[in-house]
Design a binder for these strands. Sequence first.
DNA 1: AATAACTGCGTCATGCTTGTATCAGTTAGT
DNA 2: ACTAACTGATACAAGCATGACGCAGTTATT
Lengths: 202, 202
Amino acid sequence: MGEKSPPRRIRADAERSTARILEAAETVLAADATASLEQIADAAGLARATVHRRFASRAALLDALAERLSQRYLGGLAEARVKTAPPLIALHRVTEIVFDLKLCHRFAIQLTAALTPEVLDGLDLLFARLRDTEAITAVDPAWGRKVYLALLHEVQELPADSPTLASSAAADETEARIDLLVRTTLGALGGGLPATALPLTS
Amino acid sequence: MGEKSPPRRIRADAERSTARILEAAETVLAADATASLEQIADAAGLARATVHRRFASRAALLDALAERLSQRYLGGLAEARVKTAPPLIALHRVTEIVFDLKLCHRFAIQLTAALTPEVLDGLDLLFARLRDTEAITAVDPAWGRKVYLALLHEVQELPADSPTLASSAAADETEARIDLLVRTTLGALGGGLPATALPLTS
DNA sequence: AATAACTGCGTCATGCTTGTATCAGTTAGT
DNA sequence: ACTAACTGATACAAGCATGACGCAGTTATT
């Protein structure tokens, strides 16, 4: 009793549809968490019926979305070598990756579901290591994580022409955002303020 | 043509109903922004029909709610003497007041509508004054305001038994939250960190 | 080329929410 | 005590989102 009882070949373009739906859902739901499946289908350039074919229910779609985001987060954490790299470097790197991945889901969605225990643990580990190396004085990793995520949200929503971004010494706009988030987070958690003396930038 | 064309006396208990509805709405909508009017009516101990009598539509109710919250904010800002008191004191005081008023609407509601331009300006003024007295180095008041509000949210949701709260020297739990928020905000905005040397606590 | 999978479109049923209306009973204000 | 206002209960009519079908046409896979 494996799983081929029904000799159902999953065609390639069907998976492409699934992907497009998820993509569209991420975008649309970020703007309005209560958007209808029809809106999502439209954004994906598909019929509503197709959405129902790929996902048994709205809940199933949301689950898949959460799963997808969760995977991206985990990938980012791994890529940033959160477990082994010097914590300050790792912090900068995760931030960079998160911005790159356009994980701008904005939290508008209650897709806090994407923050699975594994993801949370990954972040907590980062802030625990930051504390151990005395880069911050906040003792509770969970608190560091919450502050970081909250500030991440704010930095993402900051308009491109904000003076707060312009005052940075970074060339790239994205780089300015990263710098701002890192410095603000460290300051919030009682960091020694390495200020502009961050020896990194890839 | 004033407003007494219909000799409509507004009875006292009707206004009480209105108040109860707003109260319930604030609570219920904080937990779920898409809650139905029936849920709100139940929470208020009234019939759904009554809600419709007091408020022409759902939108009207939301407007009234936003207005109400906005007023509370403005009252708090005024009470804290944001315009005249030493900014550090004012910051501590607004925080205290906001916590007291149980303005825990949580932001779950998109009641960002409660943050009227007047309220925003009030907060911006506070952060501009903090900058001018060199309590913080962040130049853009709007950025300070956003950071403050984001951290306010996190501090409010912090469980009572969090080590982050326990590590504070404050007696009261609420006092510990206030201290945490003030210190975290100042740190985030590049403050000189008056640390535990805050000469206040009413 | 043949088969099975996939899609678009239209239809239908269902349940939930909003909003309106009516009516009998209760309560406040003078 | 009289009147007008208020309330609960109930019914009713949209409107909308969800979800399930079927069917005809298209596309991928072998």
